[in-house]
Simulated scan of single mutants.
Amino acid sequence: MKTAKLLAITWLAAGLTGCATVSTTRSPGVDLQAAWALAPAVNNTETPQAGARLDSLTASLLRVHGVRNLSVYPAARSGDALFDQADRAAQEKAMAWAREQQARYVVAGSVDEWRYKVGLDGEPAAGITLSVTDLSTGQVIWSGSAARTGWSREAVSGVAQKVVNELLDQALVPAR
């Protein structure tokens, strides 16, 4: 009987948090007071403008996590375009732009899943990768990917916000 209760409590706890997978490198520590830039996200999904949604969410959450000096790359996204125009080449242009802005760090990302799963419940699912490049060395100093599903009554953007928050919690460790 005790085993059945323990199993039920474990299952309930896992169910309340949703299914999530997070993999990151260890952050060497960053200067939150430095100049930061956000490159346009690559949309690897079939969901229109998922990259633009990730950009907006990431910019907001970077500020919430203490990044005050943030420049967002003025990506050439058309409101009429069904799919994002950002790709790896656009991210390289954004890196050059960030150097012109004298940014120390650039955050780049991609969206690998942004949808409601097909089925009776239609759970929201988001899969996102982020990386931080130190422009003083040109090296990627942190990278991570995370995926999460939520409950059928949750929005994809809410699930994505949890994913980005989890990633930024790992990336934005202040330098000592």
Results as ranks from 00 to 15, higher is better:
residue 154 E to Q: 14
residue 158 G to D: 15
residue 24 T to C: 05
residue 34 A to T: 00
residue 41 A to F: 05
residue 136 S to Q: 05
residue 94 A to D: 04
residue 122 G to V: 13
residue 169 D to N: 15
residue 88 R to K: 04
residue 30 V to I: 07
residue 124 P to N: 12
residue 128 I to P: 04
residue 171 A to P: 09
residue 93 K to W: 02
residue 93 K to C: 09
residue 71 S to H: 15
residue 54 L to S: 05
residue 111 V to G: 00
residue 156 V to G: 03
residue 24 T to H: 01
residue 65 H to R: 14
residue 46 E to Q: 01
residue 112 D to G: 05
residue 112 D to I: 00
residue 49 Q to N: 10
residue 167 L to P: 02
residue 55 D to I: 01
residue 37 A to N: 04
residue 129 T to Q: 09
residue 102 Q to T: 11
residue 53 R to T: 06
residue 52 A to W: 02
residue 56 S to R: 11
residue 120 L to E: 10
residue 79 G to S: 13
residue 142 W to A: 00
residue 136 S to N: 00
residue 130 L to F: 13
residue 149 T to E: 05
residue 26 R to K: 08
residue 63 R to I: 08
residue 94 A to R: 00
residue 146 A to F: 07
residue 100 E to G: 07
residue 171 A to W: 08
residue 33 Q to V: 12
residue 166 E to W: 11
residue 159 V to E: 06
residue 75 A to V: 15
residue 70 L to M: 04
residue 102 Q to H: 14
residue 127 G to M: 03
residue 57 L to H: 11
residue 76 A to D: 05
residue 75 A to K: 09
residue 111 V to D: 05
residue 149 T to L: 02
residue 85 Q to R: 12
residue 82 L to T: 12
residue 75 A to R: 10
residue 30 V to K: 09
residue 68 R to V: 10
residue 51 G to A: 06
residue 95 M to H: 09
residue 123 E to A: 08
residue 61 L to M: 13
residue 171 A to E: 03
residue 56 S to G: 13
residue 34 A to Q: 09
residue 120 L to Y: 00
residue 48 P to D: 03
residue 47 T to Y: 08
residue 138 G to V: 07
residue 166 E to K: 12
residue 52 A to L: 14
residue 150 G to D: 07
residue 88 R to N: 02
residue 144 G to R: 12
residue 164 V to N: 06
residue 59 A to N: 07
residue 117 K to T: 04
residue 70 L to C: 05
residue 43 N to P: 03
residue 35 A to S: 14
residue 113 E to F: 04
residue 75 A to D: 14
residue 146 A to N: 07
residue 62 L to R: 11
residue 69 N to K: 15
residue 131 S to W: 01
residue 83 F to I: 00
residue 37 A to M: 15
residue 38 L to E: 15
residue 33 Q to N: 11
residue 36 W to R: 08
residue 53 R to F: 03
residue 112 D to Y: 02
residue 98 A to P: 14
residue 100 E to D: 01
residue 93 K to S: 11
residue 171 A to R: 00
residue 44 N to L: 06
residue 156 V to Y: 08
residue 96 A to E: 13
residue 153 R to Q: 08
residue 129 T to F: 06
residue 76 A to Y: 00
residue 150 G to L: 00
residue 45 T to C: 13
residue 56 S to W: 02
residue 100 E to H: 00
residue 39 A to I: 02
residue 75 A to S: 10
residue 75 A to W: 07
residue 42 V to F: 07
residue 59 A to R: 15
residue 62 L to H: 15
residue 81 A to V: 11
residue 49 Q to G: 08
residue 96 A to C: 01
residue 62 L to E: 04
residue 59 A to I: 13
residue 51 G to N: 04
residue 158 G to K: 05
residue 66 G to M: 05
residue 27 S to W: 01
residue 33 Q to F: 14
residue 79 G to V: 02
residue 62 L to Q: 10
residue 107 V to K: 01
residue 88 R to A: 09
residue 78 S to G: 02
residue 67 V to L: 08
residue 52 A to G: 10
residue 24 T to D: 02
residue 118 V to M: 13
residue 109 G to A: 13
residue 168 L to T: 06
residue 116 Y to A: 08
residue 153 R to H: 06
residue 124 P to C: 11
residue 42 V to L: 12
residue 27 S to V: 04
residue 168 L to Y: 04
residue 47 T to M: 03
residue 151 W to T: 12
residue 49 Q to R: 12
residue 73 Y to D: 03
residue 106 V to K: 14
residue 94 A to N: 03
residue 102 Q to A: 08
residue 94 A to V: 04
residue 118 V to H: 13
residue 72 V to L: 14
residue 137 T to K: 03
residue 32 L to C: 15
residue 31 D to Y: 02
residue 38 L to H: 14
